[in-house]
Simulated scan of single mutants.
Amino acid sequence: MNPRRKKRLLAVTAIVFGVGAVIGLVLYALQENINLFYTPSELIEGKGPNKELPYIGQKLRIGGMVVPGSVVRDETSLEVSFKLIDTGPLVTIRYQGILPDLFREGQGIVAQGLLVEANVIEAFEVLAKHDEEYMPAEVAEAVKGIKHEKPKYNLGSDY
């Protein structure tokens, strides 16, 4: 092999190796930013054909309906906890902050946070749907056919 071909082969090999290394490093860096979407049933029972469960400390998104009567607010702080349901088990969401204006019991929401126990998520973001017809496609597919009653508020005779 003449020296010119050796230089070309070395240059092509170096470029291929460099591009592979860059792609590998980018994928490794993005690994922490990938948020998998779960429903409460998938979180407890496992996702996919292999029924893979998320690990404690995993960053994830979860969507479902807020269970009526499950919202508990701390009197001294902005901490709120509530339960989510789809077709099966309940999952507890704990959130520190101000909830969206559209948040209410019986409402479909998506929460993003860390799994701290098998059925408890420490959320850092809670999103509520915009109107009665809108629901993220993933949530709509998971909760298809479920009917939740809207909470009945007793406002008393003064109103």
Rank of each mutant, 00 (worst) to 15 (best):
M1D: 01
R5F: 07
K6L: 11
K7M: 00
K7E: 03
R8V: 01
R8D: 01
L9G: 07
V12C: 04
V12R: 04
A14W: 00
I15D: 01
V16N: 05
G18Y: 02
G18Q: 03
G20M: 10
A21D: 01
L25C: 12
L27C: 13
Y28W: 14
A29R: 05
Q31V: 09
E32W: 09
E32V: 12
L36G: 13
Y38T: 05
P40D: 01
S41I: 01
L43P: 08
E45P: 03
K47L: 15
G48L: 15
G48W: 11
P49T: 11
P49I: 14
N50L: 15
N50V: 12
K51P: 04
K51Q: 14
E52I: 15
E52W: 04
P54M: 15
P54K: 14
Y55H: 14
L60I: 11
R61Q: 15
I62P: 02
G63Q: 02
V66G: 01
V67S: 01
G69K: 09
G69I: 10
G69Q: 02
S70T: 03
V71N: 01
V71Y: 04
E75N: 07
T76G: 13
T76V: 10
S77E: 01
E79V: 13
V80E: 08
S81M: 08
S81N: 10
S81Q: 09
L84F: 04
I85C: 03
I85L: 05
V91M: 06
T92E: 11
T92L: 12
Y95G: 03
Q96A: 10
I98W: 07
I98D: 12
L99W: 10
P100L: 01
L102Q: 10
F103V: 02
R104Q: 11
E105F: 05
V110T: 13
V110G: 02
G113D: 02
G113K: 04
L114E: 05
L114W: 08
L115V: 00
L115I: 03
V116Q: 03
E117W: 09
A118W: 11
N119V: 08
V120T: 12
E122P: 00
E122T: 04
E122L: 12
E122Q: 12
F124Q: 01
H130P: 03
D131T: 08
E133I: 14
E133A: 15
P136M: 05
E138R: 14
A140N: 08
E141Q: 02
A142L: 10
V143S: 06
V143A: 09
G145S: 06
I146C: 13
I146W: 09
K147W: 13
K147V: 15
K147I: 15
H148G: 13
E149M: 07
E149K: 14
K150Q: 12
P151K: 11
P151A: 08
L155M: 13
D158T: 07
D158Q: 11
Y159H: 09
